[in-house]
């Protein structure tokens, strides 16, 4: 067992872990952060993405011991204290950027990571920035739209006004919803 200390979503936890414990398992099973999910064994799907020291990483491919002394943000740490959604979360909701939702926590964290570096990405830059995240349901169109909408509202520095559903993004309307 190795003693580690890690700050997750603003709270510091000290734990003894087996060196082979994956960060994602530590988050889920020890700290109860089950918002972060596992989708593969090959570091391909990105569903486990969290911010480690502020940068997006696949938490299935980092050992908990490697995160000793570091700051981790999971999808559960994005919303405000009052439960107000992060602009990226809200944009995913409003743009219908998910169907089964399994990829969503990772997509959102990868989008937060991308926007921290590029606050105004083009469609292509969003697709490239999220290339490490696979979605088997949506076809990605609404995910790209959500990230661009979130970027717009984050640049405005204000919470996007919640419009009536009929005024959801044009992309969502023209492509139709295939659930």
């Amino acid at each position: 067992m190795t003693r580690i200390s890690m700050t997750v979503d603003g709270v510091t936890y000290d734990d003894d872990v087996e060196p082979r414990t994956l960060l994602v398992h530590h988050l889920r099973e020890r700290l109860g952060k089950v918002g972060t999910v596992v989708g593969c064994d090959t570091t391909n799907c990105g569903s486990c993405t969290v911010l480690l020291g502020g940068r997006g990483v696949k938490s299935c491919s980092v050992l908990a011991v490697q995160a000793d002394g570091m700051d981790v943000t999971t999808v559960e740490g994005l919303a405000g204290a009052d439960g107000e959604l992060h602009p990226v979360q809200r944009a995913f909701h409003e743009t219908h950027a998910l169907q089964c939702g399994y990829c969503t926590p990772g997509m959102i964290m990868a989008a937060v990571d991308l926007l921290s570096e590029n606050p105004d990405p083009t469609d292509d830059e969003v697709r490239e920035g999220l290339e490490g995240n696979l979605c088997r349901c949506t076809g990605y169109q609404n995910i790209v739209q959500a990230v661009r909408d979130a970027a717009t509202s984050m640049r405005a520095g204000t919470a996007a006004t919640v419009d009536a559903p009929a005024q959801a993004s044009p992309a969502a309307q023209t492509q139709g919803v295939t659930t």
């Binding site: 082979r20 994956l22 064994d41 090959t42 299935c60 491919s61 050992l63």
Partner: peptide, 26 residues
């Protein structure tokens, strides 16, 4: 040796590799 772990971790997870000691160069 483990460096970034981005090739080694998938191999450990699939148990294609099973070292007894990892020396982290991080």
């Amino acid at each position: 040796v483990i460096a970034g772990g981005q090739s080694l971790m998938p191999m450990l997870r699939m148990r294609f590799a099973a070292p007894t000691m990892l020396v982290d160069l991080g």
